[in-house]
């Protein structure tokens, strides 16, 4: 592996290697996992870190392990690999849609799960709402050891993580839920969605909703769950039009962010229709 001293990139071979390199270069060092935002920084006249630790040659981080009760996704799995490997795996329908339609094919082939989740200033990211619905956990490693964090906690605290912390993977419990991911780009594809509704629904034997997870992305600065709507869904049969009406009544839960591409009101306004589309897609997916 490369000698790190006189260069600004270290290719790590193992997680301990990477942690050591990050630690030795202090606050100026950052992981490089895909790099689609890091590499575009110069054209945007944004700063780059003084030193990067590349993670793409760490076998552990590039693995997708599918067990009976859980799925573990290494942090350096790209969006396109994630979509391909989980294509027929339940309950990943929504996550596969998220990973398989984000940005464009070139970016999906480079951008990684870990890079995506660590980019805290990316409101329109597709993976966070999808993972929020799946009760995912994030694995973090430091030189002191590893810990797991519920996904929601991770989103809330990711800006304040200790320097030198590495996101190593995401774990998803396999529950018998139906999932879907409805995203709204302004063109047919190729731009970031202005609003996202992701959901995971557990239906009882009679087809009524036993448990519902709904998450909204791109509307606010960070994706978050929609508990007001989730509560309303429970106990009723799952139906796209009913879900749309219920969503319309609970729009007050969010404050839409104004952006260059869309005003805040628009992001809210389209949520009921996205909820309807998501429920429609969930009903079509296998449970």
């Amino acid at each position: 592996m490369r000698a790190p001293d006189d260069e600004n990139l270290f290719i790590a071979g193992t997680v301990p290697d990477a942690l050591a390199a990050l630690a030795s270069h202090g606050v100026g060092a950052m992981p490089f996992a895909g790099g689609t935002w890091i590499m575009r920084a110069p054209i945007r006249r944004e700063p780059q870190a003084a030193f990067y630790v590349s993670l793409d040659r760490i076998p552990e981080l590039s693995a997708v392990d599918i067990a009976i009760d859980r799925i573990r996704i290494g942090a350096c799995v790209t969006h396109s690999r994630l979509a391909a490997q989980l294509a027929e795996v339940e309950p990943c329908h929504g996550l596969v849609t998220a990973a398989g339609s984000a940005a464009n094919p070139a970016i999906r082939g480079m951008a990684t799960v870990g890079g995506n989740l660590s980019t805290w200033d990316f409101p329109a990211a597709d993976l966070p709402p999808a993972l929020l619905c799946l009760d995912a956990e994030v694995e973090l490693a430091t030189t002191d050891g590893r810990q797991r964090l519920p996904f929601e906690r991770f989103l809330a605290t990711r800006r304040e993580l200790r320097p030198g912390t590495l996101l190593t993977g995401v774990t998803i419990p396999r529950r018998p839920v139906r999932t879907a991911h409805a995203r709204l780009p302004l063109r047919k594809a190729g731009d970031y969605p202005v609003a996202i509704v992701s959901l995971a629904i557990l239906l009882d034997r009679n087809g009524a909703v036993e448990d519902a997870s709904v998450a909204v992305g791109s509307v606010e600065s960070t994706a978050r769950r929609w508990p007001e709507l989730e509560r309303k869904l429970v106990g009723h049969p799952l139906d796209p039009e009913t879900a749309r009406v219920l969503a319309e009544a609970e729009l007050g839960a969010f404050t839409g962010r104004d952006g260059v591409e869309a005003p805040g009101w628009y992001r809210l306004q389209v949520l009921p229709a996205l909820m309807r589309r998501a429920v429609d897609a969930a009903l079509r997916s296998q449970s």
Binding site: I43, R44, L186, R187, K188, A189, G190, D191, E261
Partner: peptide, 13 residues
């Protein structure tokens, strides 16, 4: 200020 927010037609459009 970039092709992210300035949206030109792509093949599907």
């Amino acid at each position: 200020n970039s092709l992210e927010t300035y949206r030109v037609p792509l093949a599907q459009d």
